[in-house]
Design a binder for these strands. Structure first.
Length: 209
DNA sequence: ACATTAATTGTGT
DNA sequence: ACACAATTAATGT
């Protein structure tokens, strides 16, 4: 697994020396599905890089309402944690393991150093930041301009993509929470999708067609 | 195999 | 949004 992580780093384009430093200074963190990883109001010590599995990044308000933002998958880093560390800010996001996942935790202090020392690390961070930002924009668009049925469909497709499976194991209520609507709305929309043959409904399971 | 119960999902107001 | 009906999965006997 350490070797596969090494391969992953190589495929991202990390230099030899950088890879060595990463392996030496980070540590492995395994999280089980549904484990909260970081929550708002704490200061990030380490930057997580996803080795395997996927993380769900969400916004959360004072009342505990959640809103799904995007997924983090293998080979991606949580760029947002960098920005708030650099500006010594509290985290404004919530991260939860969507599936069992392996993370490589890299101490924040080193990020700065590596960015100036290694070209490819700098590129990695910037690219990563860029693509997170793009996904975030998409989500903003979907909230601002799309109706709930379109949002739900986008959510299902995103999830199909990230899970690499046509089956989604979630209750209507969980989905409703992530999109911050009511469960009833989700149920009704899903039923419409089922009648339109876009999807097949089971208990705690949705098949996408 | 059957009954009971809890959780999830469907529908009307 | 609420209330309730219907369905399904899990568990015990």
């Amino acid at each position: 697994m350490t070797t596969s992580f090494q391969d992953l780093l190589t495929s991202i384009g990390f230099e030899e020396g950088l890879i060595a430093e990463v392996l030496q200074n980070g540590y492995l963190l395994k999280v089980k599905s549904d484990m909260p990883l970081i929550s708002p109001g704490t200061k990030p010590e380490d930057m997580p890089m996803v080795i395997s599995g996927t993380l769900r990044i969400m916004r959360e308000d004072e009342e505990g309402n959640e809103l799904f933002l995007y997924y983090l998958e293998g080979g991606e880093a949580c760029a947002m944690s960098i920005s708030c560390c650099m500006s010594a800010q509290m985290i404004q996001f919530k991260a939860v393991a969507e599936t069992d996942a392996e993370l490589w935790m890299v101490p924040m202090q080193l990020i700065d150093e590596w960015m100036s020392k290694y070209r490819n690390f700098r590129k990695f961070i910037i690219d990563s930041y860029q693509s997170r930002f793009d996904e975030l924009l998409q989500t903003v668009d979907s909230i601002a301009f799309m109706k709930m049925d379109e949002r739900l469909l986008k959510y299902l497709l995103d999830k199909k993509q990230s899970a690499g499976s046509f089956e989604i194991h979630k209750s209507h209520e969980q989905i409703a929470n992530e999109l911050n609507t009511s469960r009833v709305v989700v149920s009704r929309l899903l039923k419409k999708l089922e009648k339109a043959d876009r999807v097949l409904l089971h208990r705690n399971k949705i098949e996408i067609l």
